[in-house]
């Protein structure tokens, strides 16, 4: 194994690394650029609804886990 590795050119390693990095970055970029505002708003608001605030929703009969999150806050 050591002999095989030693015969390889070193430039191969950073080049492959760069391709992998760019692939990951492009994939993540596509994900975030095409996410909907609705979805982001919901996800960003998850910490604000942990179940302890349920009483405030009792009158509406809506459980906070299923309730709409705050509008217009997250990007």
């Amino acid at each position: 194994m050591s002999s095989i590795m030693s015969s390889m050119e070193l430039w191969v390693w950073p080049s492959i690394a760069m391709v992998i990095f760019l692939g990951v970055f492009v994939g993540v970029a596509i994900r975030v650029l095409r996410a909907t505002k609705t979805e982001c708003d919901h996800n960003a608001s998850i910490p604000l609804f942990d179940g302890t605030e349920q009483n405030q929703f009792a009158s509406s009969g809506t459980h906070p886990a299923l309730a709409p999150s705050q509008k217009g806050e997250a990007r």
Partner: peptide, 26 residues
């Protein structure tokens, strides 16, 4: 988690948090 809780506001950009996570970890 705790900053939005203390500020009572959601995180500024959930999109940015996704980029933040993967680029930082990688």
């Amino acid at each position: 988690y705790f900053l939005p809780k203390a500020a009572e506001k959601p995180v500024y950009s959930y999109r940015l948090s996704i980029v933040h996570f993967w680029s930082l970890v990688f």
